[in-house]
């Protein structure tokens, strides 16, 4: 006989466990003869019960079907449900453990993680030192726990906490349940503290996906320009000016920042089309004043010579400008060139 009494008892126990959801009376009735039956099975044939009958859970399932016992309609009580959830979770963790292990070249993931335990002890000591520093001095999270601003103190504190953590780590296995629970809770808090600290440190180091602080970012180097003042060769301020680039596109800089410009803007015939506003928006704000403002010389003034002929504003007939005072050379029909970008 290759199967021992203990093996039978264990197998029956496991089957009983798999039938835990049945009412005790039904289950006992069902399993009443199982030890004797398995003894008969064991007496004939070779191999362990597990080999010959399969896993106890599957045996229980088959037995359940054959005996016609169904799960009672009453839902299992909370204890059983929690128990089942815990069991399922544990099975899943176990499965993941054995599945992920080979990826790292270990039979189980836990084998690998166990190797990392001393590393965790050191990290724990370091985090504890950081926590002590932050709590005692109120400074923000740094890289060294500079107690009182001294590097030497930092190293001493690190040595003490890391040694302590390793000492604690080597004794964890021998601890009772309660101290271990306290230790695990403390570890969870330390990890949270560490994550928060590193996040803060990271953002301070500018690693948070934004390598340059926001204030220094200029997407447009003329972003700070509020208004444009054009002076001619004699230093006279030109008014009612429009700017175009080489493609005939109006150049828009600044905004109608003063009341006068606002008013002009709102009373424009095609209200809302900022591109029809002329520079400067606010002549009052001109940085330089050389005598009275002279109306610009009549005649064509081309601020920018478009290189693309098709986009040339064909304007020589100046329409009335909103300011009225200054005659301007404006492309007739406004900036409706049909730019054909060469690329």
């Amino acid at each position: 006989m290759t199967v021992t009494e203990q093996e039978i008892a264990r197998y029956v126990g496991q089957v009983r466990e798999a039938l835990a959801d049945l009412p005790p009376a039904v289950r006992d009735e069902l399993l009443e003869d199982l030890p004797e039956h398995l003894a008969e099975v064991a007496a004939e044939g070779e191999g362990s019960l597990h080999e010959r009958l399969g896993p106890p859970e599957a045996y229980a399932m088959e037995l359940r079907n054959a005996a016609g016992v169904t799960v009672p309609a009453a839902t299992p009580n909370l204890d059983q449900r929690i128990g089942a959830a815990v069991r399922k979770g544990r099975e899943r963790v176990h499965a993941a453990d054995t599945r992920l292990g080979p990826v790292l070249g270990y039979p189980r993931l836990s084998d690998f993680l166990r190797l990392l335990r001393p590393a965790w002890w050191i990290l724990r000591g370091y985090l504890a030192a950081m926590l002590i520093t932050v709590l005692l001095t109120g400074t923000s999270f740094g890289l060294l726990p500079r107690l009182g601003g001294s590097s030497l103190a930092a190293l001493l504190l690190l040595a003490v906490t890391i040694t302590g953590s390793i000492w604690l780590g080597r004794r964890t296995d021998r601890m009772g349940r309660r101290p271990r629970l306290v230790l695990n809770l403390g570890a969870a808090l330390l990890v949270l503290f560490g994550l928060a600290g590193f996040a803060e440190l990271d953002s301070r180091a500018g690693g948070g996906g934004n390598p340059i602080p926001y204030e220094q970012v200029y997407t447009d180097q003329y972003g700070g320009v509020q208004d444009v003042y054009v002076y001619d060769g004699q230093g006279r301020l030109l008014e009612g000016v429009r700017l175009f680039d080489q493609n005939g596109q109006p150049i828009r800089l600044g905004s109608a920042w003063c009341a006068e410009a606002q008013q002009r803007y709102e009373t424009m015939p095609d209200y809302g089309d900022l591109s029809r506003m002329t520079y400067p928006y606010c002549p009052e704000g001109a940085p330089f004043r050389f005598g009275p403002t002279t109306p610009p010389a009549t005649g064509p003034v081309t601020p920018a010579v478009p290189t693309d002929p098709s986009a040339t504003p064909d304007g020589t007939a100046p329409p009335a400008t909103p300011s009225g005072a200054a005659a301007t050379v404006t492309p007739s029909g406004g900036p409706t060139p049909s730019p054909t970008p060469t690329d």
Binding site: E29, L30, E32, D33, L34, H37, V41, R52, L53, G54, Y59, A60, M61, E62, L63, R64, N65, A66, A67, G68
Partner: peptide, 12 residues
């Protein structure tokens, strides 16, 4: 037929 089926049927 599996063993559990026979045992369960006999019990029933």
């Amino acid at each position: 037929i599996g063993d559990a089926s026979v045992y369960g049927t006999l019990r029933r």
